[in-house]
Design a protein around this nucleic acid. Structure first.
Length: 202
DNA sequence: AGGAAGATCTACT
DNA sequence: GTAGATCTTCCTA
């Protein structure tokens, strides 16, 4: 597989990376690479915006009212994908903390790194700026569907996994605000993004 | 059964 | 800045 902007030798993020508080993981995920394999094609994006969801202490978290058929992947071990639908869109979380604790980090936006042609095809648009700068748009561009719900993202053979950046992001360059699009838990400062990055959703 | 709610997006003013 | 499209799940609002 030929890459221009991404080395496939980059280290995959292990289970221990995710097995921490969602606030810690949400910050640590900024600048990491998300890799989506579709047949012979590979899409790569750099994560530039995340939100933390805090298990049963957080009224905006999907696990707040307990386990259902829809959110059951949230209760898996850290490092699994939780995919759900929001109207006609899909949204992607990665599960954090230990098994049976429904905390997670929502991937809100990425910067396209590899496979932009395919992303454009999935999105049916040509504007790179508008390809992945929101949680629904990103999942559309990366063809993240319910098939990926519950997938282990710590395995390189999975259709979806995450890889570490070359160098860590200085904490100075991380912006913090309240979360977007929710009606409860809006007072908590749980949204994080890379300051100045053009692919942050707003 | 049926309806409301929901971690969105686009197109309009 | 706001309205409307649109789809699945869950609870009876």
């Amino acid at each position: 597989m030929a890459f221009k902007n991404f080395s496939p030798k980059t280290k995959i993020l292990p289970h221990s990376f995710y097995n921490r508080k969602p606030t810690v993981v949400a910050r640590a995920l900024l600048g990491t690479y998300i890799v989506r394999k579709i047949g012979r094609n590979v899409l790569v994006g750099k994560i530039v915006e995340t939100e933390a969801y805090l298990s049963t202490a957080d009224p905006a978290a999907h696990g707040f009212n307990g386990k259902t058929n829809r959110n059951k992947s949230l209760y898996k071990r850290a490092g699994h994908a939780y995919v759900h639908r929001m109207r006609q869109w899909h949204l992607l979380d990665v599960v954090t903390e230990k098994e049976h604790v429904p905390s997670s980090v929502l991937i809100r936006a990425v910067e396209p790194i590899e496979g932009m042609k395919i992303m454009k095809k999935f999105r049916s648009i040509d504007d790179i700026q508008n390809l992945t700068n929101g949680p629904g748009k990103f999942c559309h561009a990366f063809h993240i569907t319910m098939e990926l719900d519950g997938v282990d993202v710590t395995r390189e053979k999975s259709a979806l996994f995450l890889a570490a950046p070359k160098s860590a992001l200085p904490s100075k360059s991380i912006g913090v605000s309240s979360r977007i699009g929710i009606s409860k838990g809006t007072e908590m400062q749980l949204r994080f993004w890379i300051k100045g990055n053009a692919f942050v959703s707003r």
